Computed example of a mutant assay.
Amino acid sequence: MTVTYFKIAKHNGSNPWDVSKIATDIQWTTDIDFSAGELKFTLLEVNEGFFPANGDAVSFQWDGNKVFYGFIFSIDYKSDETVSITAYDRLRYLKNEDYIVWPVGSSLQRFKTIMGRIGAPYKVVTNNTFKLPAEVSDGKTYFDMLKSSIDSTLTKTGNRYFIRDNYGTIEYLRATAVDKNTYLPTKSNLIIGDKSLLTEFTLSKSIDDAFNAIKLVREDDSNKKRKVTYKTATGSSASQWGKLQKVEKADDKLNNSQMETKANQLLHQYNKETKTLSLSAIGDMSVRAGSRFYISIQDLRDIGIGTREVLATKVTHDFQSNWTMSIDVEVL
C-alpha cells in the first residue's frame, strides 16, 4: 500500500507538480455532519521553482484508489523548511452564505439549486421526492440550508440523507434504508471486529442531546394567543433520566392535528440515548463517512450489542506504511 498519485496544480488544474515522493503525514477525514472532507499533509522539501499557494488544486490517490480532490486553504511554512498543508474538498464552498427564497420542494431540489449556485459537478445517487414547505433562507450558509431541509425530511419521514464529495463530484444520497430490501450504495459486507481489522474500541453512551418532554408552541397572530401541544414519554426514560424538556416553535399554519403529529415526531426523534462507538482499525478504502458495514466484537456482545450493521459518521485515514483508520459509528 502506497501513494500512487499526488499532485498539486493551479486552481484550474494547470502546471501540476508531482509531490508523491516528498509528502508525509497524510491524513484524510470525512464527516457526515455537513463538513467538508479534509486532507492534511506535510511536504518535506519544496522543489526549486515550486511553492504551493492557497487555492491550488490537490489530487491524491492511494494504492490506485481515487481518494481526494480539493483545494488548499491553509499553509504553514516552518523553520525546518517543511510545509504543512490543509486542503478541503468541494464541500468547503458550501460555507458560502446566500439569500434564497425556497418554493415548495424537496431537499434534493434545494441541493440541485445550490450546486448550480456554486458551479460544482454533482450526482444524485438516491432520489428524494418528499416535499417541504416554502421558506426564506436569509444570510445562511449553504450547509445550513441543506442541513435544515435534510433534518426536516428525517423528522417527518425517518429517512436520513446526506451529501459527500466523491473525488470532485458532490453526491446526494441516503444513509438509512426504508426497509431491509432497499438498496444503499454506501452499504458493504465488510466486517470490522475481533478477527477482522479491529485494533481497539471505545463505546460511549450519552443523554446530553436527549429529551423526553416536548412542548410545541404555535403563535396565532390573529388573536395574539398561543396554542401549546405538550407530549411526554410514556416509558421509563423520565424516571431514569429525570425530565428533559425541549420547546420548539411550530409553523403558524399547522392545525391541531398536525401539531399533535409533529410533537409525536419530535418525541420519537429525541427520546433516546445516543450510543457512539469509536473504532481503531487497519485501513480499508471502502470505509468513509456515510459508509455502512458490520461490527462483530465479543466484548460488546457481552453487554448486549451483537453483530450488526452500523453507520460511519466520521472517518480519519492515516496513510502511513501501517495504514490505519479511526471511525466513529452510530449504534442504534
Rank of each mutant, 00 (worst) to 15 (best):
G49M: 05
T232V: 04
K123Q: 10
Q298E: 11
I100W: 06
I118C: 10
D328M: 02
K246C: 11
K131M: 12
A312F: 00
G70R: 12
A289D: 06
K180S: 15
L190C: 05
F51I: 08
A87N: 15
L279G: 06
D63H: 09
I22W: 09
G306K: 07
V178N: 14
A134Q: 04
I191N: 00
L216D: 09
N159Y: 07
K147R: 15
T113I: 14
S222R: 08
K147C: 05
I72G: 15
K272G: 11
D165F: 06
E309Q: 10
K262G: 06
L184R: 07
K147L: 08
V83C: 15
V310N: 03
K243N: 12
L267S: 01
R160I: 02
G37D: 13
T126G: 03
S137Y: 09
T324F: 00
T261L: 09
A238P: 08
N271L: 04
Q240S: 13
M259H: 04
E135H: 03
E330C: 00
I75A: 07
F71W: 15
H268V: 12
V136L: 00
F50Q: 11
T186H: 00
K140H: 08
V247W: 05
N271G: 05
E309C: 02
D31R: 07
V247Y: 08
E309G: 11
D31A: 07
Y69E: 13
K231C: 06
G193Q: 07
E260A: 14
S196A: 10
T324M: 11
T186Q: 03
Y270F: 13
I26K: 02
T276N: 14
T29N: 09
